[in-house]
Simulated assay, not measured.
Amino acid sequence: MPEIILKYQAEIWQSIGETFVMVGISIFAALLVGLPIGTLLYLCRKGQMLENRALYSSLNIFVNIVRSFPFLLLVVFLIPFTRFIVGTAIGTMAATVPLSIMAIAYYSRLVEQALLEVPRGIIESAVSMGASVPEIIFKFLFVEARSSLLLGLTTSTISFISYSTVMGIVGGGGVGDFAIRYGYQRFETELMIYMIIIMIFFVQMIQYTGTTIAKKLDKR
């Protein structure tokens, strides 16, 4: 191992752990809230089973507004809300609040797009067989769109890692914050390069894993 890595190995492992916490909670929020919102966006569209213009417009506006926010400004804007939710605006857990909100909006749009790719004939067949709405969602929509949903989650995860690198502004830590504080600000250019390599490695592993599994799930 390079000497510079050995010198800061404790801090490096801590920063990697902080990144995993932030990204992990963001992924959980995306699945727990973003997946249902994206499904509702699809179901409430004009011409769909649960067509509801008011609900669709409300959800659509929420998603568009959050995704339109420059992420750094969103972090600052949400400081009072973050303090209300977790009791503090500083630290790794505080950083997960704006990350999770962005994750929900980001993934819900990808879910809607994935479900729109499902052939309409499949849904019409399910309706003709007397399937209920929950059955159509879980036994037809999600099954047919599972590959696209996974690819969307993979893309989202990589974006969450990118967003996590700016969380140093609220003391969130993580690999990006470590690279700036220890690498850039202390003129340890070699250390910063190694941290960039670590980030690239993580992203490539996530992309490869997600793409491989998605190909296996795609039965088309």
Score class of each variant (00 low, 15 high):
residue 173 G to R: 08
residue 201 F to N: 02
residue 48 Q to L: 08
residue 151 L to Y: 11
residue 18 E to I: 01
residue 219 K to I: 15
residue 163 Y to T: 07
residue 217 L to K: 11
residue 5 I to G: 00
residue 4 I to Q: 05
residue 47 G to S: 11
residue 6 L to H: 07
residue 26 S to E: 02
residue 155 T to K: 12
residue 51 E to Y: 12
residue 184 Y to S: 10
residue 165 T to S: 15
residue 30 A to L: 05
residue 217 L to D: 03
residue 176 G to S: 12
residue 205 M to D: 01
residue 136 I to E: 02
residue 136 I to K: 05
residue 19 T to N: 01
residue 204 Q to S: 14
residue 73 L to C: 10
residue 84 F to M: 15
residue 208 Y to R: 13
residue 147 S to H: 07
residue 3 E to R: 07
residue 157 T to E: 09
residue 35 L to S: 04
residue 59 L to H: 01
residue 153 L to P: 09
residue 122 I to A: 15
residue 124 E to K: 12
residue 6 L to F: 12
residue 130 G to W: 06
residue 77 F to S: 14
residue 215 K to S: 08
residue 161 I to E: 04
residue 218 D to T: 06
residue 179 A to H: 09
residue 52 N to H: 14
residue 58 S to V: 15
residue 4 I to N: 05
residue 135 E to N: 06
residue 154 T to F: 02
residue 183 G to M: 10
residue 57 S to L: 14
residue 109 R to A: 11
residue 108 S to P: 04
residue 170 V to K: 10
residue 102 M to Y: 15
residue 51 E to R: 08
residue 42 Y to Q: 00
residue 16 I to F: 12
residue 71 F to M: 09
residue 92 T to R: 00
residue 206 I to E: 05
residue 149 L to S: 04
residue 144 E to G: 07
residue 22 M to H: 02
residue 165 T to A: 15
residue 19 T to Y: 01
residue 81 F to K: 01
